[in-house]
Design a binder for these strands. Structure first.
Lengths: 97, 97
DNA sequence: TCCTATCGCAACCATCCAGTTGCACGACAC
DNA sequence: GTGTCGTGCAACTGGATGGTTGCGATAGGA
């Protein structure tokens, strides 16, 4: 799955937020979301395939953490298409600050 | 349709590129892509619903142009989740230059 | 007026995808 | 060893979606 497709699902975006906040496992996420662990697992597989997360298995648990490289690609595409990215990035900086 | 979902389709992203380059109509795009004008029209409707394009009808033709505000939202989300957006934005600037 | 080009609406189809259930396997605790 | 917890795989289902065809309406040019 490509990055944009992976980010198209609201649930996946929310999960990525959690993962970015702190590395998480599938079962932990399944407690936070009103869906099955299997469904969570599928979402994580999608995020993994898109290169957005990193799998680290220790013992019987698999913990997912954020891999932000692909997010740069997204920003790059948006900036490229959006045009006038110079002012746009400045505005963004201001907004985030 | 929300912005991320609208951008999830490769064809729509390509179309948005064209539109960003210069405002275009549905039939013109249909000549550039290997799909029907109807399919193009649906994609444009999706982009419109997401607030990514602006419709300007003159006579019998409807021309679509880019509305970049929503793209800012996308960049905002990515920067927010990605973290360390300060260095990231600097890197992006360098890459685009 | 008549022909043509652009567009919108609706129905239909095939595929994809999020979600479920069920089961089996390996790791940890007792 | 036995039970439990976390994970993975497979099959199935309902709904969303990209694509098509067909038709009717309207605007412009000959």
């Amino acid at each position: 799955m490509d990055v944009f497709a992976a980010l198209s699902d609201p649930t996946r975006r929310e999960m990525l937020r959690h993962i970015a906040d702190s590395p998480t496992t599938a079962t932990e996420l399944a407690r936070l979301f009103p869906i099955t662990r299997q469904a969570v697992s599928k979402h994580l597989a999608a995020l993994d395939e898109a290169g957005l997360v990193e799998r680290t298995s220790s013992g019987r648990e698999v913990r997912y953490s954020l891999r932000s490289e692909r997010l740069d690609d997204v920003m790059g595409w948006v900036a490229e298409v959006g045009g006038e990215w110079d002012q746009r990035l400045d505005r963004l900086k201001k907004r985030l600050r």
